[in-house]
């Protein structure tokens, strides 16, 4: 399995192919949302909504063989695409890998300019929540 860094570099080069054309970049992000595994309906509840996102984002995590497995969904297609990128980088890794991950691909693919500053805050809230889940699972494992 590729490292977090390797996956980030893959993503960066994929976005480089798209170039500066904002329309095709957004279209690509929306398509990526289709890669998300279907979100369990019973988890689509208020407690799993991430605060600080303009659109609704549901996120849950559990551990499989000491690794964190995320599932997420959103009511907007662009956000779904962004989530799928985060999940592609962070899913099925150890809590420690997730906690110490530096997600510089977001900056490098120029996400701020694509989604605007308000949604960038939402993205930051999403990453924070993913790391908090990893931290919680790590704490549980060390008990």
């Amino acid at each position: 399995m590729s490292s977090i860094q390797e996956v980030q570099e893959e993503i960066i080069s994929e976005f480089e192919i798209l170039g500066d054309d904002k329309e095709s970049t957004i279209f690509y992000i929306m398509e990526l949302g289709g890669n998300l595994e279907s979100f369990p309906e019973n988890e689509r509840v208020e407690e799993n909504i991430i605060k600080g996102c303009q659109s609704k984002v549901w996120l849950v995590a559990d551990s499989k063989d000491g690794k964190v497995h995320y599932q997420a969904d959103s009511n907007t297609d662009i956000t779904k695409g962004l989530i799928s990128l985060l999940i592609r980088v962070l899913n099925d890794r150890t809590p420690q890998e997730i906690i110490s991950a530096e997600l510089d691909f977001i900056h490098k693919i120029g996400m701020g300019g694509i989604i605007g500053s308000q949604r960038s805050n939402g993205l930051a809230a999403m990453i924070k929540q993913m790391k908090l889940y990893a931290l919680a699972l790590q704490a549980k494992q060390s008990v």
């Binding site: 904002k22 329309e23 957004i26 907007t76 662009i78 956000t79 605007g116």
Partner: peptide, 14 residues
Amino acid sequence: GMHPFDVGVMLDAK
């Protein structure tokens, strides 16, 4: 079938 945010971002790209 579309969220207004997505429509807004795509129009902005235009």
